[in-house]
Amino acid sequence: MVYSRQVQDQVLTFGVSGMLYKNNLLMYDHQTESLWLQVQHAAVTGPMTGASLEVLPSTLTTWNTWRRTHPETVVLSTNTGYDRDYHRDPYAEYYTSRRTIFGFVRDILQGHEAKELVAGVRWSGGVKAYPLEELRHVGEIQDTLGGEELVLRIDPDTDTLRVRDAQGAEIPVIVTYWFVWKDIHRDSERYDVGP
């Protein structure tokens, strides 16, 4: 997910704290050393507690689709200053071991794949996860959350996800793994197609 690093009149830089809260990464800002919960983009300890980062629009899609729809794009270089094998996925091992250590995660998955990607919406007092594959398949989902109507739409050409309320105003959405979302939002509903 993509955020602004500006909080009020302060520009922050962020690092990885190494600490976890309910399987979710806590990042920290160098300026105040507050810990921030990534999935809620909010400071949860330290001087910045209660502050939050503005979510900026981003698109999770394939390289092929992004390149085709944004011919002017540039791409992050592997010349990062770090010697890492960018052909290997560090998560494969990481999540397997994590699931072994934190076995309780399995209990909250309700039979769904832990690493399934979902679009998570927290809005109008409601919390709900929409499986990304289902959204891609149907293109548009009209739903009610917290008593208010909302529409999730994926542009089939650009693979861009937008969530809007009945007036057309944009609603923030987070795309993440199902187990991450559900662990943080234990009360989250889940959108599923009927049998």
Binding site: V16, L60, T62, W66, H70, V75
Partner: peptide
């Protein structure tokens, strides 16, 4: 590869792609 996932951002007329291959190693 064509099927690799990227996080794409367009802001101030600039388009950038962040491959998950790289993001997974650095997070931020």
């Amino acid at each position: 590869d064509e099927a690799d996932q990227v996080l794409g951002v367009v802001l101030n007329g600039v388009a950038r792609a962040y491959p998950l291959r790289i993001l997974s190693w650095h997070e931020l």
